[in-house]
Design a protein around this nucleic acid. Structure first.
Length: 423
RNA sequence: GGAGACUUGUCCGAGUGGUUGAAGGAGCACGCCUGGAAAGUGUGUAUACGGGAAACUGUAUCAAGGGUUCGAAUCCCUUAGUCUCCGCCA
């Protein structure tokens, strides 16, 4: 959520930035500022009346103490009049505030200056590529066939027990999951991230905090009896740890990592893109979240980029880094880099990680702040990234490292997996 | 799930209808003291929104929301949470 005062002071700049994101309802900016002006006026009038009521009430107390019942009764009448004047104003104020809030949450975050204009994935910029695309033997298979061949993942069984998009991992497949999770967490904690194991369900306030509600309600599984939501990513519980907190400046940066299953309803996705591991309702992910000083959030973003990059390098996968264009970025992000790994067997790039700086967009809604050297309260910047999402990494590992009689396990993973080959 | 006790500022804790945004203590910050530190001592120490160049000032906030009242931290209702006992249970 953007700040009204920022919009007021930088209206033209904000509108220009919103256009980079292909945001249509530009007039909202004007509406919000106008409503906020109205809000201020109403607030002043309300405060003034309330102040009179407070003063009169005190007088009544004093008059009563003196036993002057007549004057007290007159004062009471005065207060009653003031209160009847108060009511319509306070109702109007509530309604204006509601309008402002509702409009404000419709505005996406403003993209950073470096974000290219564009409407679709073709307009994303390739920042750099790394790793070697393998030359596979004849008869190389896509991961869903490899998963079957080596009995790693059973999609049909998931269909039976739960439904589509809830696979079983089995034998070496299950162990590979465990090995990857362990490896990723060790890698992250080795770089100073604190490990958490958060709840997998969150309450409504937390879902609002990170912006899953109100817009993306349909994307989360909802346990209606208790009004809990299954988390779509560890970002939700992790970021909400600090909701409504004021931290000390020297506590920044706060670096957190967590492994969790992620649950996504992904309503309305069909076709070839959902084949195999490409899109699931439940999948495993290790997430990074940082809360940082606003002055250096972009340095931190670069640092997170290098972190994820070296992780992919250690898995010996061919990857590229994209700077997303305005139209392809998420609602909340100011700058996003996507990591894609080349799948040699599917002959396409698969997104395996997304690293973003949200600036104050999330922390403004959640009121995550710090006290700076001058004693002033300021919002922190939040960033997050996956390191990494398992299914597509597994797909890429299987497809890129396959040989005729098995799948080679990257050196870095061998101590965790316990073998050099999946066979 | 049943019964009871409880929820006050960074923390502890006083406060059962009227100058209480909130006593007292601890912590923290700054100053004095000291060769340095501890001890001592002085001052300061919530957040949001509004007005003001600023000093300062108005309003709201004592778990959350609603109600009673001229006036609520204090009374009533609802919700959430904590603790104790009983039940159940991995």
């Amino acid at each position: 959520m953007l700040q009204v005062n920022y919009l007021r002071a930088n209206k033209d700049e904000a509108i220009a930035r919103l256009k980079v994101k292909n945001f249509q309802e530009i007039s909202l900016v004007e509406t919000i500022v106008a409503n906020d002006d109205e809000r201020k006026k109403l607030q002043s009038r309300l405060d003034e009346i309330q102040s009179k009521i407070n003063a009169a009430s005190k007088e009544i107390g004093l008059l009563m103490a003196k036993g002057n019942k007549e004057d007290a009764a007159a004062k009471k009448e005065e207060v009653a009049e003031l209160k009847s004047a108060l009511l319509p104003i306070s109702e109007e104020l509530t309604s204006v505030e509601k309008n402002i809030y509702e409009d404000l949450v419709k505005l996406p975050n403003l993209p950073h200056n470096s974000v290219p204009a564009g409407t679709s994935p073709e307009h994303n910029e390739v920042v750099r590529e790394g790793g070697q695309k393998p030359t596979l033997h004849k008869g190389a298979l896509p991961h869903w066939d490899l998963a079957k061949k080596y009995e790693l993942i059973n999609f049909e069984l998931g269909n039976k027990v739960t439904g589509a998009g809830f696979p079983f991992y089995k034998g070496q497949g299950a162990k590979l999951q465990r090995a990857l999770i362990q490896y990723f967490l060790d890698f992250n904690t080795g770089k100073g991230y604190t490990e958490y194991e958060p709840p997998l369900m969150v309450n409504e306030a937390s879902a609002y905090g990170t912006g899953q509600l109100p817009d993306k309600e349909g994307q989360m599984y909802h346990a209606t009896e208790d009004n809990f939501y299954l988390i779509p990513t560890a970002e939700v519980p992790l970021t909400n740890i600090y909701r409504e907190d004021i931290v000390k400046e020297n506590e920044l940066p706060i670096k957190m990592t967590a492994y969790t299953p992620c649950f996504r309803r992904e309503a309305g996705s069909y076709g070839k893109d959902v084949r195999g591991l490409n899109r699931l309702h439940q999948f495993d992910k290790v997430e990074l979240v940082q809360l940082v000083h606003p002055d250096n959030s972009y340095e931190v973003l670069e640092e997170m980029l290098l972190h994820v990059e070296s992780l992919l390098q250690s898995l010996e996968l061919p990857y590229r880094i994209l700077r997303l264009c305005g139209g392809d970025m998420s609602f909340a992000s100011a700058l996003t880099y996507d990591f894609e790994v080349y799948s040699a067997a599917q002959k396409k790039w698969l997104e395996v990680s997304s690293v973003s700086n949200f600036e104050i967009f999330q922390t403004n809604r959640m009121k995550i702040r710090f006290k700076n050297a001058d004693g002033k309260i300021q919002l922190v910047h939040s960033l997050n990234g996956s390191s990494l999402a398992l299914p597509r990494i597994v797909a890429a590992l299987l497809e890129n490292h396959q040989v005729r009689d098995g799948i080679k396990v990257p050196k870095a993973l061998q101590p965790y997996f316990g073998k050099e080959m999946i066979d």
